Amino acid sequence: EPLWIRPDAPSRCTWQLGRPASESPHHHTAPAKSPKILPDILKKIGDTPMVRINKIGKKFGLKCELLAKCEFFNAGGSVKDRISLRMIEDAERDGTLKPGDTIIEPTSGNTGIGLALAAAVRGYRCIIVMPEKMSSEKVDVLRALGAEIVRTPTNARFDSPESHVGVAWRLKNEIPNSHILDQYRNASNPLAHYDTTADEILQQCDGKLDMLVASVGTGGTITGIARKLKEKCPGCRIIGVDPEGSILAEPEELNQTEQTTYEVEGIGYDFIPTVLDRTVVDKWFKSNDEEAFTFARMLIAQEGLLCGGSAGSTVAVAVKAAQELQEGQRCVVILPDSVRNYMTKFLSDRWMLQKGFLKEEDLTEKKPWWWHLRVQELGLSAPLTVLPTITCGHTIEILREKGFDQAPVVDEAGVILGMVTLGNMLSSLLAGKVQPSDQVGKVIYKQFKQIRLTDTLGRLSHILEMDHFALVVHEQIQYHSTGKSSQRQMVFGVVTAIDLLNFVAAQERDQK
């Protein structure tokens, strides 16, 4: 057995438009009618409502009807409940999964919650491996369901041993009777949507819809739904939504950006999952974080739909894509998950301010006199920076000697690579993860907040409520011999709460 199987392995699926269902090699399930009293909570997966979006479509000038398939009504709160249950049931049916076995899954959280929910009911041990950027709410729900959680670096490539995929496979090879159901490759993922989600949409719309818009992560949702719609409703256009920084969209030119990270969760990847059939997507749109969270908040405030950030991405694209539809036509959007997962993220004004998705003037509360002053007023001194090749031991000596707790790590040209902190280095040394002679590049981390000289002290204040420091950066445009230009970030300084307090105190003292 291989040590790991690539999540982007070539698909062996034989589905073709027009091929009889009787030739399918898979076990198919028909939607079942729910009894009045459910035998367990797993029976509350599927049969989610279709809700008309009344205000947002009109606000953006849509002539067509805009409908939302509300997947956050599933038992675990997301569309991923469907595939989690289906993968477990299919693994039980073919004898792969037996009582007492362990389920391991690399996930952005929602599939993990679905699997942990099913594992709690069915009696399996469950280990979820997820990147650090995923919300604390997801972690809390997983723990409450009895799952064990392993976190991995957000910026690790999918084929790196440190990625959530790599760590999951390492655990599988170490733990007896453990299984990775593997949402990236498992046919049960798109089949769950082909058999149930798509049929529900067709039934709820009486077979009449002209466009379907869905955000894409593993691709199982859009693949399964689109294949069924292509068979039953061939005139329906399928629109895929991919965040900026991901590479799922086609044509490839759409993916060209210097951005590699994004805040919206559960969609987009740096590889093409095996289950994603991009041939059934008629057109791709890219979405960005700001519009995703703005539209998610709009869905909550104006439509009462308590959905997550990827739902915002989907609707932001839908109001663009559906401009081509006329009166009497219908566009369906998939709202994948609930706001429950993001209470401390985009639902929080403070978080939105820190990330730059909300401006101070958007909030009406009274601010102190210094709130709208610029960061450049602080008069920061030149920063202490270190090269990635310097040793951890030497870096600790320098920081202690100069009285700093942290320093930016830059390359020879001064471009920011990340940050090192005294606390992080000492804990890594004590844990045996690094040696004093190791290069400081081994303990770089990139989960820090950046701020510009033109940003306000109010925004800085919000950042420092949650973080010990902020890195002050400025952009530099560099022209190359080819005539092309590129933008790079340079370090201007490091600012802490002490710097802000000293500035405010000094100004008030001078005024007296």
Rank of each mutant, 00 (worst) to 15 (best):
K320D: 01
I398Y: 11
V333A: 14
V317S: 01
K355G: 08
D270G: 06
V281F: 09
T274H: 01
L501T: 01
T261L: 07
D282A: 07
E360M: 09
V443H: 01
G240L: 01
V473P: 07
Q406D: 01
G308F: 01
I477H: 13
T482S: 12
A311C: 06
D362I: 01
P251S: 09
L299W: 01
R400Y: 15
S485G: 07
I398R: 07
T395E: 01
Q447C: 13
L399P: 01
D270E: 11
P408H: 03
H372G: 14
T274V: 04
T314R: 01
K512C: 14
I451P: 12
Q478P: 13
I238N: 01
I267A: 04
L248P: 03
T385Y: 05
F503A: 09
E253R: 12
C392W: 12
K345F: 01
L457C: 15
V440Y: 05
G312H: 05
G483E: 12
E252C: 01
E412L: 11
V386C: 14
I247T: 12
A413M: 13
T261N: 08
A407V: 12
T257F: 09
I247R: 08
T456R: 08
L426H: 11
K283N: 12
L387P: 14
F503R: 15
L460M: 10
E253N: 15
V280D: 11
K355H: 13
G356R: 08
T391N: 12
A505D: 09
I398V: 08
G418C: 07
T257P: 04
Y342S: 04
E401G: 11
L417W: 08
V375M: 09
D467I: 01
K402I: 07
K366L: 12
E324R: 01
K286T: 01
V319R: 01
M425F: 10
I477N: 14
P436Y: 09
K283D: 08
T385I: 12
I416Q: 05
N288C: 12
F293C: 04
A296F: 07
L422S: 09
V275G: 01
F293W: 01
F285W: 04
L353T: 14
L373S: 09
V241R: 01
L453T: 09
L430T: 12
T454M: 13
Y342P: 01
L384T: 09
Q329D: 04
L305V: 10
K359G: 06
I267F: 01
V264I: 14
F448D: 03
N255C: 08
W284K: 01
T261P: 15
Q478K: 13
Q478I: 09
V332Q: 05
K320C: 08
E291T: 08
I398E: 12
P436A: 11
H468G: 01
Q435A: 14
Q302K: 04
Q478R: 12
K442M: 12
V332D: 01
G423M: 01
Q476L: 13
G441W: 06
D277L: 06
D282H: 01
H474D: 06
V315C: 09
P368Y: 14
K449V: 05
T391V: 14
Y445N: 08
Q450R: 01
R400W: 10
P408R: 01
A249S: 04
I463R: 07
Q354F: 11
K345P: 01
T421E: 08
I334R: 04
D242L: 04
H474W: 05
F346I: 11
K283A: 10
G458W: 10
G312F: 01
L254R: 09
K442F: 11
R452W: 15
L248D: 01
T421R: 14
E303R: 05
M298L: 12
T294W: 12
E401M: 05
P251Y: 06
N255V: 05
